[in-house]
Write a protein that binds this DNA or RNA. Structure first.
Length: 423
RNA sequence: GGAAGGGUGGCAGAGUGGUCGAUUGCGCCUGUCUUGAAAACAGGAGGCGGGCAACCGCCCAGGGGUUCGAAUCCCCUCCCUUCCUCCA
């Protein structure tokens, strides 16, 4: 959600910025309804004030024993009440429409974001390492995994259907090692506080982070109002929903490992080979709640924190600054980390590091107070993966495969995996 | 799953139809006093929204109802505590 005040005072700027994301916003309709709503509520509140006054007078009359006068006053008030009730009904309508309109406004892109609608408008900010050279034909990860018994695809689909993987033997071990490695680095080295969240959340939490109402079809729903989390961002960000934080508590930096569950209903048939796109996958998520004036510096350091994992593993990747049209609805600025897959000969997205500014905080009602007596203001919220395992797993075994199909484990992971090589 | 009792301001804890947005205590802020602090005394202090402002409206878990008037009465939902049951 955007600030209503911004919509009222700078409608044309909002319209133009939203257009950069390719979104036509109903700003005219909003202004019209907003105007009507404000006129109505001003009048309604004056009425309500009259009524409150009258009720007090009746109370006074009653206590003085002037019953007749009191009864007469009641008659007058009763009529006024009906008018107010009608006004309130109209107000509820207008408010519902305002809320509905408000949800159609995307977050506005930061000025540093390139304007454009195609992937080729994304800016490659930096690359790390080189495309690893091979003196043989590198295999895709599913062939490597199959040959060494790291992932059992046929049995996965037998027990759970398509879009699931069963990690077995050294594969399971590597998977578990990656999670421990990443959580350790983000907590012990990069200063995040570890959170282990529930995997099921109430609808209210999904509204807070914006998955609902728009993306219900991507979620698994297990009960009346319980959903499986599509990312740890949901439980972790919502930890502070409806809270007012003290400025000295910020920044709050949280790192959470969780499994993630996505129906991927819009992506049926896409990336079906291997483990590029799964209904269930593992991810370490980083969330920051920060002071507004620091949020862009915090975005840079968040991105560096996510990158540090890839660097330590010795994987080639690049950082892409998404253009306006490629960013998600609630983003103000977003870096993607793209990891090189030698087997697929393309870059795979393993992390999106985003600054939502106050957009998400406004929805989730996460505020901060600078000093005693100050008005609360909305915090800025950022998140990024640090990182998602399936594509990382794939890139690791593809990058470090040997001609005989064995896989050398990167130094940093050896204490976690417990071997130098998966032979 | 069954039974009972509860959900009030940062916390504790009053309030069971009428100037209650709410007594009081602790904590907090500002004055006075003091070299400074403590103590004492005086005052202040919640959130959301409308209004240029003065002010005004709404908020006592959430929703609905009764009433001129609801924190207080009625209905529904949610949550918490204790006991039982079940389980890892």
């Amino acid at each position: 959600m955007l600030d209503r005040h911004l919509l009222r005072t700078q409608p044309e700027a909002v319209r133009a910025d939203a257009k950069k994301k390719g979104i036509e916003v109903p700003i005219d309709r909003f202004l019209q309804i907003d105007e009507e709503w404000r006129t109505l509520i001003t009048g309604l509140q004056a009425r309500q004030a009259d009524l409150n006054r009258s009720s007090k007078e009746i109370g006074a009359l009653m206590s003085q024993g002037k019953r007749d006068e009191a009864e007469a006053a009641k008659e007058t008030v009763r009529a006024a009440k009906e008018e107010i009730a009608a006004g309130e009904a109209r107000e509820r309508e207008l408010e519902a429409e305002l809320r509905d309109l408000e949800l159609q406004f995307p977050n506005l892109p930061h000025e540093s974001v390139p304007v454009g609608f195609d992937e080729d408008k994304n800016a490659i900010i930096r690359e790390w390492g080189d495309i690893p050279p091979f003196d043989f034909e590198p295999k895709p990860h599913w062939e490597l995994a199959e040959a060494r018994g790291l992932i059992d695809f046929p049995r996965a689909s037998k027990i759970s259907g398509s879009g699931f993987a069963v990690y077995t033997g050294w594969g399971a071990r590597l998977q578990r090692a990656l999670i421990s490695f990443m959580v350790d680095r983000q907590t012990l080295r990069n200063g995040y506080r570890e959170v282990y969240p529930p995997y099921l959340v109430l609808g209210a939490s999904l509204y807070g982070t914006g998955q609902l109402p728009k993306f219900e079809e991507d979620l698994y729903k297990v009960d009346d109002d319980l959903y499986m989390i599509p990312t740890a961002e949901v439980p972790v960000t919502n930890l502070y929903r409806d809270e007012i934080l003290e400025a000295w508590q910020l920044p709050i930096k949280l790192a959470a490992y969780s499994a993630c569950f996505r129906r991927e209903s819009g992506a049926a048939g896409k990336d079906t080979r291997g483990i590029q796109r799964m209904h269930q996958f593992d991810k370490v998520e980083l969330v920051k709640i920060v002071l507004p004036e620091n949020s862009y510096d915090e975005l840079e350091s968040l991105t560096v924190d996510a990158e540090s994992i890839l660097q330590e593993l010795g994987l080639h990747y690049r950082v892409s600054l998404l253009c306006t049209g490629e960013m998600s609805f609630s983003n103000a600025k977003c870096y993607d980390l793209e990891l090189w897959s030698p087997g697929l000969r393309k870059y795979l997205e393993v992390s999106s590091c985003s600054n939502f500014e106050a957009f998400q905080a406004r929805r989730a009602n996460i505020r901060l107070r600078r000093a005693q007596g100050d008005k609360p203001e909305f915090a800025h919220i950022l998140n990024g993966s640090g990182l998602a395992t399936p594509r990382l797993f794939a890139a690791i075994i593809e990058t470090f495969q040997q001609e005989d199909g064995s896989i050398v484990i990167p130094d940093a992971l050896r204490p976690y995996v417990g071997t130098d090589v998966i032979a």
